[in-house]
Design a protein around this nucleic acid. Structure first.
Lengths: 232, 232
DNA sequence: GTGGCTATTGTTAGGGA
DNA sequence: GTCCCTAACAATAGCCA
């Protein structure tokens, strides 16, 4: 039998690893026992949570550690953390429901504007809708015409500028050719270029306006199906 | 000085309240001391949470009780509780964003269908839109005409039934008057009622069809403003 | 890591202030 | 609730298996 040194231990880190591990194990159980005794003797709720140096978890609770933690949170205002999150979640869900309803409403109205799902409308609603759509097409056509005009004007202006620029170039060419090596053939080519530019601008615009059968109305992905519907 | 009875105490509830309170106080501090010693001796993280019988909270921690609890949660999978809620919140927020975008898109398309906000569309899009609206108005008018026809038919049928019923009533009246107290005046009233009913049904429908200036297009709360827009 | 041993130290019941 | 006191008891350091 080995006696202890006649010296009480100091409460400081135990450097010798094996001794520290043993002490950890013994004292840990000691605390758990004390905790249990306290909870029984005094009818109290006790939880002890211990992490060893290596990160291992040991816990004791007279009831359930989680319950004690929950009670702890409610006593320290920690309840708020969860409740705030839950409340945010609740708000977010209500928001989602609201948005879904609005979206559904907008979707239905859009379909009706496109002439779909009309069977549930009464005569009054159909007349209102008809007026809406008529007013709409008037504005669409007006807008389109304005756009066409502005594009024509833009192209015409650009064409005029080009003609003016080319005329100036031709003049220079003539001046240079008078004392240089460029003959009449070169001037003819410039003339042709000029004419092509002038007519091309306006005729392209006009073609776009009258035919317009090319690209899809890209903003209306879910409207394009209408084009294939039978109107009968 | 009073000696203790030569009997070790049993670990059971202390019935005498003052003694229980004192024991609670002493042992509580004893546990906290042990906990601190353990944390120092073995470089471990310790938390002790105690609720007295009266619900009062006492806690010790080598660092911070909340930190230890957080660490406890992460070790017991309790992390999931918060993370699930947070994840749900995250999903809900993403959902909200998605719905908001869809709603914005639908709102914009609806406005364009109504002939508003067209300035940003190019010629191609305007032409597509024009075709959509034209197709729409065709369907709206067709639907309206069908509705009118069916209403007329319904009213006409009902009118015919009424006429038939009234004729039968008139016959009975005539038969009764032959041996009773109803004179020619009564028969005339029945005739008038008959005519009013017959014409009233069809004329009301026709009026509705041509004028239709009464109630609002209730499905289009945010479309009604269009009616007051100037088209020039 | 656990458990036993034992000398020593620490805790605490019971009492009083 | 606290602190002190003291005797009794519990916990545990150091060591081994």
């Amino acid at each position: 039998m080995v006696k202890r040194m006649n010296e009480k231990i100091k409460i400081r880190r135990i450097d010798y690893l094996p001794a520290r591990q043993v002490t950890f194990s013994k004292r840990r159980r000691g605390i758990f026992k004390k905790a249990e005794e306290l909870s029984i003797l005094c009818e109290s709720e006790v939880a002890v949570i211990i992490f060893s140096q290596t990160g291992k978890l040991f816990d004791y609770s007279s009831s359930s550690t989680k319950d004690v933690i929950a009670r702890y949170k409610s006593h320290t205002g920690g309840e708020k953390w969860d409740q705030i999150t839950l409340h945010q979640l609740q708000l977010e869900k209500e928001n989602t429901i609201r948005l879904s309803k609005e979206l559904e409403d907008k979707t239905r109205k859009l379909r009706q504007m496109k002439g779909e799902d009309l069977q549930d409308l009464d005569l009054d609603q159909l007349n209102k809708l008809e007026k809406l759509v008529e007013a709409s097409i008037g504005r669409v056509i007006k807008t389109k015409e304005k756009k066409i005009m502005s594009e024509i004007m833009a192209h015409a202006n650009k064409g005029a500028e080009l003609i003016e620029a080319n005329n100036q170039l031709k003049q220079r060419m003539v001046m240079l050719s008078a004392g240089g090596d460029i003959g009449p053939a070169g001037i003819m080519e410039l003339d042709n270029l000029n004419n092509v530019g002038e007519e091309g601008v306006t005729s392209e615009s006009a073609t776009n306006v009258t035919t317009c059968s090319s690209s899809a109305f890209s903003l209306e992905d879910d409207c394009s199906d209408i084009l294939s519907l039978k109107l009968g």
